[in-house]
Amino acid sequence: MKRLFYLVSSVAIVLGFESCSLDDDGANFHYTPLQIVNAQVPDTFEFGRVYTINVDLLRPDNCTLADRFDVRRSATDSTNIRTVSHIGIVLEKDECAEVAEEISDSFQFEVIYTEPYIFKFYSGNNENGDAEFIEVQVPVK
């Protein structure tokens, strides 16, 4: 009788684990750059200081969430050119309501060069699909 109990219990446990599969159908979100509509940058920088750069973003729908900034030094241009984009997370839902809401976020920027900085804030793509930018030049004291 004990053997039958253990056999039935073992089968029940194995079937229980099989029905609780951890397999996932895939990611339920993806990343996308958000459109920057405005950036508040100081008129001048002081060498060695850290500044807060405030940015206004466009949140297109209620399935899109602001995540983080991507600030990159241009690989082909001067060391003082920074391309700034804001990465959003888009939840893959069946229905998303358009909100066209402006939200604000900020990032810290440390001035490590004495030459003027040029910021290129990603502001979306034009009708040809090419990236467009808001360019701001900030001299360093």
Rank of each mutant, 00 (worst) to 15 (best):
M1E: 06
R3T: 10
R3M: 12
F5P: 13
F5M: 15
Y6E: 11
L7V: 13
S9G: 15
S10T: 03
V11A: 12
I13M: 00
I13D: 09
V14E: 05
L15I: 15
L15D: 02
L15Y: 06
L15K: 09
G16N: 11
G16P: 11
F17T: 03
C20L: 15
C20A: 10
C20H: 11
S21Q: 11
L22R: 08
L22P: 00
D23S: 11
D24H: 09
D25F: 15
D25S: 08
D25Q: 10
G26D: 01
A27G: 06
N28S: 05
N28F: 06
N28H: 04
H30R: 06
P33S: 01
P33N: 02
L34K: 00
L34W: 04
L34I: 06
L34Q: 08
Q35L: 12
V37M: 14
V37I: 06
N38E: 13
N38R: 13
N38L: 03
V41L: 12
V41C: 09
P42F: 07
P42W: 00
P42V: 04
T44N: 03
G48F: 11
G48H: 03
R49M: 15
R49V: 14
V50R: 12
V50C: 08
Y51A: 06
T52I: 04
I53N: 01
V55Q: 10
L57S: 02
P60Y: 10
A66K: 07
A66S: 14
D67F: 07
D67A: 03
D70L: 14
D70H: 08
V71Q: 03
V71Y: 11
R72Y: 02
S74A: 06
A75T: 04
A75C: 09
D77M: 13
S78Q: 03
T79H: 14
T79I: 12
R82E: 00
R82F: 05
T83L: 12
V84M: 00
V84D: 00
G88I: 08
I89D: 01
E92G: 06
K93F: 12
D94H: 01
A97K: 14
A97N: 10
A97G: 12
A97F: 06
E98Y: 13
E98W: 07
V99W: 10
V99E: 13
A100M: 14
A100K: 15
E101M: 09
E102Q: 14
S104C: 02
D105G: 09
D105R: 01
F107H: 12
Q108D: 00
Q108E: 06
F109S: 00
F109M: 02
E110C: 05
I112R: 15
T114E: 10
I118V: 12
I118P: 05
I118E: 12
F119I: 11
F119H: 00
F119C: 05
F119S: 05
F121C: 04
F121S: 07
S123A: 13
S123M: 10
S123N: 08
G124I: 02
N125L: 14
N126P: 13
A131N: 09
A131R: 03
E132V: 05
E132K: 09
E132R: 05
F133P: 01
V136I: 10
V136M: 01
V138E: 06
P139N: 07
